[in-house]
Amino acid sequence: MRTVSPRPRGRRAGFDGLGLRRGLPDRMLPFLVAAMAFLAALAIAGWFGAASLSRHWRDGAGSALTVQVPDPDLPAVNDAGAAGRTRLAAVLAELARTPGVASARALPRDELANLLRPWLGEAAEQPALPLPAVVAVRMAGADADTARARTALSSVAPGTLVEDHGVWVGRLSVLAASLRACAAIAAVMVAAVAAAVIAVAARAGVAARREAIEIVHGLGATDAYIAGRFARRASWLAGLGGLLGATAALPMLLTLAVLAAPFAGGQGQAGQQPMAELALSAGDIARVMPGGLWVMLPALPLCAAAIGYITAYTTVRRWLRRLP
C-alpha cells in the first residue's frame, strides 16, 4: 500500500473537480463587483481630492494674511524704532520683527490699482477716496500665531486691519475632513456590499454544487481544499470585476482631476481650457492625478480579489461544518 499524503491538493492546473465554472459562473459576479469597484474608485478619488484641496488651502491661503494700513503715509505712533517713520514703514518693520512671518510685501500702487480696476475702471489710477496700503504677509506655517502680529501692528499704526485667511481655511478644512470621512465610509460600505454579494454567490455556488461537494468530501478532501477551490474561483471573478470597475472609472477620474487641477494648484491652464481643447500628455496626466490614486487604482482589483477570497473561503468553510 502506498503512503497517502496528509494534505490533499489537486495538482493539475485548472482542474475543476467541483465544477465551479458552473457553480460560480462568470456572468453576474464580475459585473456586480465591477459596479462596486467603480463606486469605490469614485469614493477613493473623492477622498484624495478632498485631501488635496485641504492641503493646498492650508499651505497656500492658510498661511497668508492681508494687512490694510489706513493713512499709510502719516507718521507712526509709539514707534520704538527710528523717529519719523510712516505708519506703513512701521508696520513693515514690525512685521519683519514678528516671529512666524516668512515675508511681508507692500503692494505697489499700480498693483493695487490693477486690483481695483474691475470696479473703478481708469479711475483706479487716481481714486478720489484715500486708499489704505495693502501688505501681503506670508506666515511660516498655517498654524503660526497671528495674534501677536495683530497686537504689535495696532500699537504702531492704530486702525490697521489684519485679515486672517486661516479662519476661512480652517472652516474649509473641516468641510474637507468631513468629505474625506464620507468618502471613507462610502468606500467601506461598498466593500461590505461587495463582500455580501460574494457571500451570496458563494452560498448559491454551494447549493448548486452540493452533490459534488459531498462526493469530494467523501473521497477525503479537507474543508480547506474545498473552501480553497471556491475561494480561488471567487477571487478570480472578483479580481476581474475589480479590474473592469477600475478601468471604467479611470476616464472619469482623469476628467475630474483635470477640472479640479486649478483649485488644487495643479495644471491651472489645463483646467481653464474647454475640455475639447485639452490634449494632455502622459506627463500632464501624471501631474493632475493625485499620486495616491496611482497606487489605489491598481490596488482595487487586488482588494476585490482579496475580499472575494476571504469571503468565499469563510462562507464555504462555515457551511462545510455541517458535514461530518
Partner: peptide
Amino acid sequence: LPHLPIFDNVALPLRLAGR
C-alpha cells in the same frame, strides 16, 4: 461527478492524495 470526464472521475482520489 457528471461534469468531469471519466478519466478525471477515476483520478480524483489520487489528485486529492497529492499524487
